[in-house]
Amino acid sequence: MARITPTPGQKILYFLLVSLGIGILYIDINTNSFQEIKHGYKSLKISSVYILKNISIEPVRRVLNLTKSKKTLLEENTNLKKALDASYLNNYLISRENSFYKDDNILKYPLLDDDFKANYSLAKLKDLDPNIFKCCDKHRMYIELFSNSKEQSNLESVVFNKSGIIGQITNDGNYLEVILLTDVSHSIPIKSISDTFFCNAKGSGRANIIICSYNPLIWDEEILLTKTFYTSGLGGIFPRNIKIGNVSNILDISPNLREIEIALSANPLDDEIFGVFKN
C-alpha cells in the first residue's frame, strides 16, 4: 500500500514542531532553564540503579557474605580503602611541590567525626560522562560528600584528586556539581615558576587541555614546551603555587597573540575519590 506524503496540515505541524524545537534549544543553550529536569533525571537514574542493586544484587551478596563469614572483613576492607584514599590525598597535599599549607602539622585528617576540625572533605564520584568529557565543550562532574553535613556551603570550593586540582564546585544541590578546568566556560589564573608570567587559562573543551592566550609583546618570558605552570592564587579561589601542568603545544596566532596549550597533571577519570577544600 502506498504511503501518503505529508498533507499541508501535517507540513504546518512539522514546521511548528521544528520551530518549537529550535526555540527550546535556543532557550536551553542561553539560559540553562532545563537543568533541574536534567539533574532530576540523573538523580532518578542513580537512585534507580542504587535501589535495583540493593534489591537484586545486595541480598545475594549479603547471603554469600554471611555464609562465608566475611562481612566484618569486608567492612574493614572498605574502611581501609577509604583511609588509603584519604592518605593519598593527604600525601598530595603535603608533598614538596605543593603548598596548600605552610605547616604540615595543621593538616587534619578528613575522616574525623567532627567535620569542622578537618581541613577538607572526602567525596566520591557520582556521575561523570566520559563521552561528554572526551567529545564536548561542557565538562561537568557530580560528586557526593562522605559526610552529609549541610551546615556549610561548598560553593566555589576547590576539588582535587591525588594528582592535582581538577575543578571547583558550581552547584550545591543533592550532589555537588563540579566544573572541570577543561570546561570552555572555566578559567583559572596561572603563572610560571619565575613569577614573571601570569595569565588566565581557559578550558579548551578537550580532555586534560587548558589554553592560555597572551600577547608576547607584553609578556616577554620565553615559554618552552614542557615548561611547568602553577596556580597564581589571584582571584582567591585556588591556592597559590599548586602545579597545574606542562606546556604541550605553542601556537603563534598572530604577532600579538600566542596560545599555549597546557596538559593538566590531574585527570578526573583516574580516581573515584576526591578532596573538597572548605572555604
Partner: peptide, 14 residues
C-alpha cells in the same frame, strides 16, 4: 544523552 533539549527533537522531526 544529556544534550541540550530540542536538539534531537528538531532533528528527529526533520
Amino acid at each position: 544523552h544529556g544534550s541540550y533539549f530540542g536538539l534531537n527533537a528538531t532533528l528527529f522531526c526533520l
